[in-house]
């Protein structure tokens, strides 16, 4: 870890990240530090490169150019730099938990086996130890009664909570969330957000790509607005969400506020139930 200017420890450092898909430049030179225990939200219109940026952090996408550092592990890409080997990448990713839009649970395993899989196969933990940890994590996400259910028997919200537990089982330094509520029915969103809020309160370092603006306002320490592959505005959550300076951020958020007012009453009613 490296000390940043404000004295806090930077857990994630992205420096001048570029990503091309063929001739298309999805990410155009973005840089940001995320301090340990901070929650960064990345917002922006569809196709702006926010998911690609997130996937570059755990190197599911290979940056065309730039440096990615998580904890002590630093990788630099671009001319003159070798691609890290598969083994190095695998070890690097054990420190980074990721949750996806489509959950991507392993369908041939039960909920608890999904959570145990990483610790057993990757971390070489004993079956007993992995099972105890997995049971604790499923309890934490409120799914103790679903340990032996297969993914097809779970609702979207339950599946996504298992996916969060599966990522946490690796005891990652950082958690990445890629539009994790976008595939859920509206009434199942809050149970997933509830778990994420809990993680944020516990001091988990998180990077969250989302369209849930009210959740961002509530949980985020920092927000970056991304458009056309660039960070066009970044800062404290309140500053960006309530008082954006950039015209594109303003118009992007204005659309959300309009929609949020309509959903506001229904959302407040749901929140109370939780």
């Amino acid at each position: 870890m490296t000390s940043s200017e404000n004295g806090k420890e930077a857990m994630i450092q992205i420096t001048d990240l570029h990503k091309y898909f063929g001739d298309v430049q999805a990410v155009r030179g973005v840089s940001i530090d995320v301090n340990a225990g901070d929650v960064l939200f990345v917002i922006g219109p569809s196709g702006c490169g926010k998911s690609t940026t997130l996937r570059c952090i755990n190197l599911l996408e290979h940056p065309t150019k730039g440096t990615i550092q998580v904890g002590e592990d630093s990788h630099t890409f671009g001319a003159g730099h070798n691609m890290p080997s598969g083994r190095v990448l695998a070890r690097y990713r054990t420190h980074i938990g990721m949750v996806f839009q489509q959950f991507d649970l392993f369908p041939h395993m039960t909920a608890i086996e999904n959570v145990m899989e990483g610790p057993i196969t990757v971390l070489k933990k004993s079956n007993k130890e992995a099972e105890a940890t997995a049971a604790d994590l499923l309890a934490k996400v409120g799914l103790s009664d679903k340990e032996d259910s297969f993914p097809t028997q779970l609702s979207g919200g339950q599946a996504q909570r298992v996916a969060i537990a599966r990522a946490l089982a690796m005891q990652p330094r950082v958690m990445l969330f890629d539009e994790v509520t976008s595939a859920l029915d509206p009434e199942l969103v809050s149970e997933v957000l509830h778990v994420m809020r809990q993680l944020a309160d516990e001091g988990t370092t998180m990077v969250v790509v989302t369209h849930e603006m009210s959740f961002a306002r509530e949980v985020a320490d920092h927000v970056v607005m991304m458009d056309a592959g660039q960070f066009i505005e970044q800062g404290e959550a309140e500053q960006i969400l309530d008082n954006p300076q950039n015209a594109r951020t303003q118009s992007f958020l204005a659309r959300f506020h309009g929609a949020a007012e309509i959903r506001g009453m229904a959302g407040a009613a749901l929140e109370k139930e939780i």
Partner: peptide, 23 residues
């Protein structure tokens, strides 16, 4: 096999052979 299964295995830190064998 769905693309998501590959990326979920990789994201857990599996090597290629672990991913093939287990998932």
């Amino acid at each position: 096999i769905d693309k998501g299964q590959w990326q979920a295995s990789r994201a857990l830190g599996m090597t290629y052979s672990q991913m093939m064998r287990r998932i």
